Computed example of a mutant assay.
Amino acid sequence: MLFDTDFKQRSDTNTWSHRDGSPFTQEEQDTVFAATRDELEEVSDQITRYRAYRQSKEEAPEALHRFLSPFLDQLVQKHLRKIIESMTEDELTELKRLLGAMDDPILPFTPNTF
């Protein structure tokens, strides 16, 4: 339940709410208040990792541009095949990661995934 919690207290119901905006029932509120410090820290860590994941996906087009710029500047004839041929294995791996980040849609937050 902690992963579905918007930790802002609603003034109209005097409770926390789910991420979709629906208020907690009293039973749900009691359950969340019973969470241990370790559970709250784990939720915080997973949400932090998810935010980092989203940010890397959103920044992928600019990161790809920055990554390819030095290769483009080196070439008189700017053909992608020539650029790829001049890359190291690590550079090819990074290129594939960035292209994949641009192609794949952003996944929704799912508990215990990030």
Score class of each variant (00 low, 15 high):
residue 2 L to T: 04
residue 3 F to K: 02
residue 5 T to Y: 08
residue 6 D to T: 06
residue 7 F to Q: 05
residue 8 K to P: 00
residue 8 K to I: 11
residue 9 Q to I: 14
residue 12 D to I: 07
residue 13 T to Y: 14
residue 13 T to I: 13
residue 14 N to D: 10
residue 16 W to M: 08
residue 18 H to F: 10
residue 18 H to V: 07
residue 18 H to K: 08
residue 18 H to P: 01
residue 20 D to S: 07
residue 22 S to K: 13
residue 25 T to V: 05
residue 25 T to A: 08
residue 26 Q to F: 03
residue 30 D to H: 04
residue 30 D to T: 05
residue 33 F to R: 05
residue 34 A to H: 01
residue 36 T to F: 00
residue 37 R to Y: 07
residue 41 E to R: 08
residue 42 E to H: 02
residue 44 S to Q: 05
residue 44 S to F: 05
residue 46 Q to M: 00
residue 49 R to N: 00
residue 51 R to Q: 04
residue 53 Y to I: 04
residue 58 E to V: 13
residue 59 E to R: 14
residue 60 A to M: 07
residue 60 A to Q: 13
residue 61 P to Y: 03
residue 62 E to Q: 14
residue 63 A to Y: 09
residue 66 R to C: 06
residue 67 F to Y: 04
residue 69 S to P: 01
residue 70 P to G: 09
residue 71 F to E: 09
residue 71 F to S: 11
residue 72 L to H: 02
residue 73 D to V: 05
residue 74 Q to G: 09
residue 75 L to C: 05
residue 78 K to Q: 13
residue 78 K to P: 03
residue 78 K to G: 06
residue 79 H to K: 13
residue 79 H to M: 12
residue 80 L to C: 06
residue 80 L to I: 12
residue 83 I to H: 02
residue 84 I to Q: 15
residue 87 M to H: 09
residue 88 T to Y: 14
residue 88 T to H: 12
residue 89 E to L: 12
residue 90 D to Q: 15
residue 91 E to T: 05
residue 92 L to R: 15
residue 92 L to M: 15
residue 95 L to T: 11
residue 95 L to Y: 15
residue 96 K to E: 14
residue 96 K to L: 06
residue 97 R to A: 14
residue 97 R to C: 09
residue 99 L to S: 10
residue 100 G to W: 02
residue 100 G to C: 07
residue 103 D to T: 14
residue 105 P to R: 11
residue 105 P to F: 04
residue 106 I to T: 11
residue 107 L to D: 06
residue 113 T to M: 04
residue 113 T to L: 03
residue 114 F to Y: 07
